[in-house]
Design a protein around this nucleic acid. Structure first.
Lengths: 257, 257
DNA sequence: CTCATCGCGATACAGTGTATCGAGTGATAC
DNA sequence: GTATCACTCGATACACTGTATCGCGATGAG
């Protein structure tokens, strides 16, 4: 039965490459895959293959795929350099916002995960702790509610703006490589829609508006938000968390950042 | 070979229920499923089954699953009532923001889709056209760039805020039914983390901050943003899209809403 | 009545996350 | 040196997913 010479049989898989694995290695490989091919390049099988391991091996280091995604997000949070304490709060928040935007440009898949679920990894917690710290203790933000309101608002804006920006950039490079005009890339559909004349402002946006500098648009919105915070906190006696502009369905869900 | 009586054989599936299908019926069924069980209850097979049809039948009405998701989003945009023209711009934007938030509370899956890709359905387009219209022509917004900057900022905030709020509400009701304290719901992990003392502001947020009224927090942030827009546009000679607070990586991607 | 058309869904395929479990390895005990 | 144990790994399996293909069967036309 074993007449065949040993060298003809495939090497027993006893130890093909028992690379010592680790959570960090796994997360790193997953991030690399996601950076190259988007989030759906991140599957347990593909990450494992990228590490020369069987799929099931990963489950020794990671409970579930969602946990792996959480770890990826936390890793990216760790990349974001935080402003040193003592910086002017506007400058500090601006730096943080730019840091998040830059991270999302480096890792476009981040926007699919940002805000999708609460981030509680160590880097995420340090990040938000530092963000809160940039406002805490300043006279403009006397209570933690003031701090939370401002930080939550800026973060909400940043998340939404970055997500929109990345989504459009993605679609732009998906349909028609580097077409500079939105309508050209979007094909005849938008042209037909606009031709109906029922969307005059949309038409204006596409034909007249400035479409070249996403970073500047981001900063414009960020300035709006920061100006609003500065202006509002300047009003004496103002308190956050209780001033509803219009009645809205009450809810018991907390709205932390 | 055919000795068995006919009534013992299952009825030939000639015409079990050839319900006349339509895109609207499909989208409606998909929305119902998503409302009840979240987005991953929406699969081609399940939607088809809910309509008493075979899976492949749907592909006569819908090109791909992503298109179905787009149609769902557009349908929800159609539910959002728009302010009548002529309303004060702050009130109008506030109503629109509340409309989106209310829609997201009715259809929590919406936040997983909002901003994930550009929305170009008819309802989405009328929605944004109307939103632009609330600002277009006002003296505070002399150019379409001013309009776009303000609308884009408000939308970015709304998307981000709603997404964060829904994500937290989801997780709250997932882990520990109706636990009123974040830290209690999140189990011993957060308690341990906070016990290290390295996150004093986070601890303050969880122990001292107001956690009861998500709607009020949403309005607080919205007021920040609207105040910022009002304050900024009041400055003479200010122009949007070009004022970068700090240098940032330039980009060629447009940043429309 | 016959033929053609076409809508429908059964089947198939490649992929997913993950539970189970058997094999084989290393370390440990004598 | 040998025997045993524990444990790690990955092959296999299962229930799903989105979607391409294709053959059946009913329906409409002549």
């Amino acid at each position: 039965m074993s007449n065949e010479p040993v060298w003809d049989r495939p090497e027993p898989p006893s130890k093909p490459s028992p690379t010592p694995l680790s959570r960090d290695l796994i997360v790193g490989a997953a991030i690399r895959l996601a950076d190259e091919g988007g989030l759906d390049e991140v599957s347990i099988r593909k990450v494992a293959a990228a590490l020369g391991a069987g799929p099931m091996r990963l489950y020794g280091y990671v409970e579930t795929k969602d946990e792996l995604l959480d770890l990826m997000v936390d890793e990216v949070y760790g990349e974001i350099t935080l402003p040193e304490p003592g910086t002017d709060w506007r400058a500090a928040l601006t730096r943080i916002a730019h840091g998040i935007r830059a991270a999302a440009k480096r890792h476009p898949w981040l926007v699919d995960l940002l805000g999708g679920r609460p981030h509680r990894g160590p880097n995420s917690l340090t990040h938000i702790e530092a963000t809160l710290a940039t406002l805490d203790g300043r006279p403009e933000f006397p209570t933690i509610d003031h701090v939370l309101g401002a930080v939550g608002t800026v973060m909400a804006y940043v998340h939404g703006a970055v997500r929109n920006e990345i989504a459009e950039a993605r679609e732009e490079q998906a349909s028609g490589m580097t077409e500079e005009q939105w309508q050209a890339a979007s094909g005849p559909y938008m042209r037909k829609v606009l031709a109906t004349g029922r969307f005059p402002r949309l038409a204006k946006v596409m034909f007249e508006a400035e479409h070249t500098n996403a970073a500047a648009w981001f900063d414009t919105g960020l300035d709006y938000v920061l100006n609003g915070i500065a202006a509002t906190t300047r009003s004496p006696g103002w308190r956050p968390g209780g001033s509803a502009t219009a009645p809205s369905a009450p809810s018991t869900a907390p709205a932390g950042p």
